[in-house]
Nucleic acid binder design. Structure first.
Lengths: 221, 221
DNA sequence: CGGTTAATGTACGAACCAGTACGTTAGTCA
DNA sequence: TGACTAACGTACTGGTTCGTACATTAACCG
């Protein structure tokens, strides 16, 4: 979520297309995450940049395309983070716990991203569907899970009837819910799931849950 | 989500306050769930009822209060459902699986409710906070979980370091994610988490997960 | 160094939308 | 039965908000 990469070769602040676009995306990400797609105001986004509304339409075409661009960049960030994943040197048990913890950490560190995903689901993932980039982005995390799972299942340590996508859903659901539903859960049950002092507790709970599930004997229905 | 209870004693359709209010709430629930708070249109809600926009303001005061009323009724429905919970005759293991399954079923049957909760979280649970009813609604399900947990922990069957709120969060997160994030998950990973043919698979997965976690030996960090 | 174009700013329009002023009718009760 | 009030309808308004027409300037290139 940091802004620009090219500080413009001269000190001059004017006429820097890349920087203007990046700044618009930064602000738009915050505004859309704050208020939702329909709640976000194009004028408000413009006001928070050093440029004008005109530029938003010049570079992105419209509100809808701007939101899609925001999503594309946000998913790009997590994709990059997932590519950093390095758990191959660990045994399956430690590897899967580590992966779960990194997912946990990532969700906690990017609440705006979580909100964007919630918002996109309210719109039935229409923007993802119409984005070539997003439709084909893939998931490095899924590949990692697949490898760990294969190893664990080969040695008989893990139950055989799980696949990578399901396990990813299980881990994500816990991490996502904790951040996304923080407000209603807190208001209704009086417990802040994202309180710093409970962080380690929930992190361990996730790891325990995943490992317990993977190593459990098949229970009867 | 069925509409009215009093079919009006005469066949006359006019002048039935309770029915008008219920009809507005029905339609508003759908419209808010469909488009989000800011995306929903008061005119559109009015158009889908047999009455006019004037009545919405007459009975509810405004868009904001209407949304709060929608939330209040939606939470009222799940509260009633939870009061039907009857698992006390089962042993702790069977009871907790049954409870998880009922939660699973309820989420699946009420996707509009899930969307409303997502929407309310985007607004930082502001409406819940300002509603006396919602702030004090409580949760029968939580009481049930508490009882099961106590029994299971007393006999040493369940691990001791879980409390009812955390377990409720764990169960809810799986059920909620599956419905709420169905669209983005499907678009990105090509798997429909709510596909009917996968229903039993995920239902069993949830039960297995919860039981495995509760009965696991404390694993090392 | 003049011209071409990418980049930017200003001001405005047209549609939309929450909310309301004002008027009307159905039921009810004395 | 007449008057009172709850319930309802119509038509409008004032502000908001996405989007754009038009004007301008900086950079680059031959």
């Amino acid at each position: 979520m940091t802004s620009v990469d090219e500080p413009a070769r001269t000190g001059a602040r004017t006429r820097d297309a890349a920087r203007t676009q990046a700044e618009i995306l930064d602000v738009a990400t915050r505004e859309f995450a704050r208020a939702g797609y329909d709640g976000a105001r194009v004028d408000e986004i413009a006001a928070q940049t050093r440029t004008t509304k005109r530029m938003i339409y010049y570079y992105f075409g419209g509100k809808e395309q701007l939101f899609t661009a925001v999503l594309e960049r946000a998913y790009g960030v997590i994709r990059e983070a997932e590519q950093e994943l390095d758990v191959d040197h660990l045994d399956p048990l430690a590897a899967i716990r580590r992966l779960a913890e990194l997912t946990f950490d990532h969700h906690e560190r990017h609440p705006d991203f979580i909100r964007l995903v919630s918002i996109e689901n309210i719109h039935d993932a229409a923007h993802i569907a119409s984005s070539e980039m997003l439709a084909s982005i893939g998931s490095p995390a899924l590949d990692v899970i697949r490898r760990i799972l294969e190893e664990g299942q080969r040695t008989g340590l893990f139950r055989a009837d799980v696949d990578a996508v399901d396990l990813h859903a299980m881990i994500s659901s816990f991490c996502f819910f904790r951040v996304a539903n923080r407000h209603t859960f807190g208001a209704l049950f009086g417990r802040d799931l994202v309180a710093p002092e409970q962080r380690e507790h929930y992190r361990a709970m996730l790891g325990d849950m995943v490992i317990a599930y993977l190593t459990a004997e098949r229970t009867a229905v």
